[in-house]
Design a protein around this nucleic acid. Structure first.
Ligand code: ZN
Ligand code: ZN
Ligand code: ZN
Ligand code: ZN
Ligand code: ZN
Ligand code: ZN
Length: 835
DNA sequence: GAGTTTGAAACT
DNA sequence: CAGTTTCAAACTC
């Protein structure tokens, strides 16, 4: 009632208020128009300070889409790819056509380290020209829904869907085709946008990120790849390279074709995109599985098809709408080059947020949205080439995205480096335990009450109207579902404007509010593995929360602790008292964990914690360090920015795409939403579909197992380098458990330079095994971890994990794509070398 | 399912 | 930035 806010909270400005009533497009429009956003200009400011980096990490979507459905189905988006710089864009031509589409993107970013973590962000953002940093803007957007894309300077965006064609980028034809296809077959839901930004920073560590997306339907095949070249980027310009892809199934395909056609690896950097279709709903879990199986490519179609195909399930995310507004926002941002967008929100939003964008010109960003989602995985093998983009000059990126379902949001991106992102908020799931169990079973189901099918949790908010971060749904960037037991809920598509405004408001305070909270640093692993498995990479061990917990009574042994809930150990950023986090106590992280491969690895668990620190410290040098600087952690810096904006916003999503490296360490963030969203769908518009399903949101049960689920959910994995730890796992399989946990959340990998320094892979070994185990088995506590955790993790999906990978990639920072491409795999070598 | 505990989010 | 309040999930019973 009336309580204070009677109505929807007004978000930010109130003025605008968006009452629910206002859903109408008009409002949206207005909203968009309104300068509010600028709020933080930060976005701009921060974000683009000039340059590069993206300020926004998450960016919420500014625009509001009206409904996704419309979009998606109707027309998709198109994909555009442009490369500005030297070349132009690549277009796709034709193609092969396979059904699968994959995108790989690798990005190399340099990580910089700025001094402080915190600052780092700012720095990034601010740095205007980025002095050192260049920003490349590469944007990749894949939206199905959104028509608009914006690129920076160079790039233009197509404005609307229709217009899209115009764009220079990809061949219009292709796009159109996509549309058709999409329309027809696909629901169109997927949109993936990844914003990436590459920056070079001083040192330039660059990170690469690869994302692969495969379409489910199509098949596995992977086959197609698309590569785009970016040339270098100019330093300043952000825009230089922008790539936008829209993927949809069809879309993807075509792209592929095109890609192939053109394919080229172009110059310095090339991008590969692989898109797969997204699946909608359900699938999350399944996706995961599939994911694994396919590794990157494959995604199960079913999901997509099933759900997606025709119907849209409900999505939590954005179903709604996007607002018409779009244009405006976009244009501005886009056009100008950037962006200006007020809002940065970036991470997933419900809605789609739109994001804003940004871009600023400078920074390079790539956005990927995925609407429906699927999973993203990187693929590599085949493609391998991946590329890298580097920024240096140009930066190239490769993204591969698979979308998975929204459900969990899992998106996995693999970067060579391996970063993953976890979702924002909590995992959520309550039932984790169950799930774990369930995982395997296909059916399973469901879980607890809390969760819904899709995997998302359902909230029970009574006084927050689901417009505050207290609400898990809202925090995750998704709309409340029917299953939610919330009261006076405004987190619904009908109130999209309100939701968006509120988001923006929140973001204005904390740009990373919707960003993934967990970052992983992973170590690289063997290349081969990595690719395929990416997901596996998760390493709980390496992952940590950005903000850290402040537990006083739970000793970080219960889910009250966000770190624990996310299945990650506490880091220096945590202010917990009496930390006994099974995944790692505070000190450890900072220290660097070392796992020795052989030696210590096993120990990991408990021992590790206490001892680790010590050990680590000492060894760390020797062995490896995982992760991240403590500093990084916390702050994480996220770097994301999102550029986008758009209405659809989608774009943003991935904002992260950007992978940002953290300046400091080079972490990368993925946008949470992105990830999550991705899952949700948010991505682009966010559409999230969260659930996918139609059915229920959550879970569906299905299939897949936990792992998959987990993966999917969270997982966005970026493969940066080849690293993937998985190797050990090898295969597909990844330990379930392990995976799960991690998987749950999205992960982003970070590269950490530091790591590089040392060792190569501690994690691998250890992690592979240990991580999970540690947790799990353990001694301590683990309570349920295995299972539950996994499940939990899944939930976490929302969260993202970032992994930092030091990986070698970095080594190359940026570098060329080619090199990278090759190298990545070689990672091992690198390691050795590094070592 | 009600009630308690908990720590993040929000607010001051 | 710290202290307090609010909040909903996690947990307990
Ligand atoms: Zn709620
Ligand atoms: Zn809800
Ligand atoms: Zn609600
Ligand atoms: Zn804690
Ligand atoms: Zn903690
Ligand atoms: Zn702790």
């Amino acid at each position: 009632m009336d309580s204070p806010e009677s109505s929807p909270p007004a978000s930010t400005s109130n003025a605008s208020e968006t009452a629910p009533v206002e859903d109408s497009p008009v409002f949206s429009y207005i909203s968009n128009l309104s300068p509010l956003q600028p709020v933080k200009s930060s976005s701009v400011t921060q974000g683009f300070p000039g340059l590069n980096s993206p300020p926004l990490v998450f960016a919420s979507p500014q625009l509001i889409p009206h409904k996704r459905a419309q979009f998606s189905r109707t027309s998709f988006d198109k994909l555009q790819v442009r490369l500005e710089d030297s070349k132009n864009s690549v277009t796709t031509d034709k193609g092969h056509g396979e059904q699968n589409i994959q995108l790989n993107t690798s990005i190399a970013a340099s990580t910089e380290k700025s001094s402080d973590s915190n600052s780092s962000v700012d720095e990034l953002i601010q740095s205007p020209s980025g002095s050192c940093e260049q920003v490349l803007e590469d944007i990749v957007n894949v939206d199905s829904s959104d028509p608009n894309f914006s690129f920076d300077s160079t790039i233009k965006k197509s404005e609307r869907n229709d217009q899209l064609a115009n764009a220079p980028t990809c061949s219009t034809e292709t796009v159109e085709n996509f549309r058709h296809e999409l329309n027809s077959g696909i629901t169109g839901e997927l949109a993936v946008t990844h914003p990436f930004t590459c920056k070079e920073t001083e040192d330039a560590q660059t990170e690469l990120i690869l994302i692969n997306a495969s379409a489910s339907e199509k098949a596995m095949g992977q086959g197609d790849e698309v590569s785009v070249n970016c040339s270098t980027v100019g330093t300043e310009l952000p825009a230089n390279n922008a790539v936008v892809y829209r993927s949809e199934d069809n879309f993807m395909t075509e792209l592929q074709n095109a890609k192939t056609g053109q394919a080229a690896p172009l110059d310095q950097s090339s991008h590969l995109l692989t898109g797969s279709k997204a699946f909608q709903n359900r699938g999350v879990r399944r996706r995961c599985l599939q994911f694994e199986n396919a590794q990157h490519n494959i995604i199960s179609n079913r999901l997509a098809q099933d759900t997606s195909d025709g119907e849209k399930p409900k999505t939590r995310f954005l179903e709604t709408p996007l607002m018409p507004i779009d244009g405006k926002l976009y244009p501005q941002n886009t056009l100008n080059s950037s962006i200006k967008l007020p809002k940065p929100s970036g991470f997933g939003l419900h809605l789609n947020s739109i994001l804003n964008t940004v871009q600023a010109g400078s920074a390079a960003t790539i956005n990927v949205k995925t609407a429906q989602w699927d999973c993203v995985s990187a693929t590599t093998d085949g493609n391998t080439h991946e590329t890298h983009a580097c920024a240096s000059d140009g930066s190239s990126l490769s993204l591969a995205t698979n979308v998975v379902e929204p459900d969990n949001n899992s998106v996995t991106l693999n970067s060579n480096s391996n970063q993953s992102i976890l979702g924002n908020k909590r995992n959520t799931e309550k039932g984790s335990g169950l799930e774990g169990t369930n995982n395997l079973s296909p059916k399973k189901k469901r879980m607890n009450t809390t969760e819904s099918d899709d995997g998302y949790k359902r909230c029970n908010c009574k006084r927050s109207k689901c417009l505050k971060l207290y609400c898990d749904c809202f925090a995750a960037g998704i709309y409340c579902a029917d299953d939610c037991s919330c009261q006076e809920c405004f987190n619904r598509p009908d109130y999209e404007e309100t939701v968006i405004e509120t988001r923006q408001k929140i973001e204005s305070r904390d740009p990373f509010a919707f960003a993934p909270r967990v970052v992983q640093h992973i170590i690289e692993q063997s290349p081969s593995v990595s690719r395929g498995e990416d997901r596996s990479n998760f390493t709980p061990a390496s992952a940590r929360h950005k903000k850290g917990c402040k537990c006083k009574k739970s000793m970080c042994l219960k889910k009250y602790c966000e770190c624990y809930q996310a299945n990650v150990g506490c880091s220096d950023g945590c202010r917990c008292e009496g930390c006994k986090n099974v995944f790692g106590q505070k000190g450890e992280y900072g220290m660097a964990k070392v796992f020795l491969a052989g030696e210590d690895s096993q120990e990991t668990t408990d021992d590790l914690s206490a001892e680790k620190c010590e050990i680590d410290a000492s060894r760390s040098h020797t062995y490896h360090i995982e992760f991240v600087n403590p500093n990084n952690l916390t702050p994480l810096t996220p770097a994301f920015q999102f550029p986008n904006h758009e209405k659809d916003g989608s774009a943003a999503w991935f904002p992260s795409g950007k992978h940002f490296q953290s300046p400091e360490s080079g972490l990368t963030y993925a946008s949470p939403y992105a990830m999550s969203s991705a899952s949700h769908n948010i991505s682009a518009n966010n559409a999230v579909i969260p659930e996918s399903s139609k059915e229920s949101r959550h879970g569906n049960g299905n299939t897949v197992d936990e792992l998959s689920a987990a993966r999917s959910r969270s997982s966005l994995v970026w493969q940066g380098s080849p690293i993937t730890p998985m190797a050990e796992f090898s295969g597909s399989k990844v330990p379930q458990e392990d995976v799960f946990e991690f998987g749950l959340s999205n992960t982003v990998q970070d590269d950490t330079p530091e790591i590089l320094k040392d060792s190569p892979t501690p994690l691998n070994t250890v992690k592979a095994n240990s991580p999970n185990r540690k947790r799990v088995s353990p001694p301590h506590g683990q309570p349920h971890e295995h299972t539950s955790s996994s499940s939990a993790d899944l939930r976490i999906a929302r969260k993202f994990i970032l992994k930092a990978v030091p990986s070698f990639p970095p080594l190359t920072p940026c570098i060329d794509s080619k090199t990278l491409a090759v190298q990545p795999d070689s990672s091992p070598e690198n390691r050795d070398d590094n070592k």
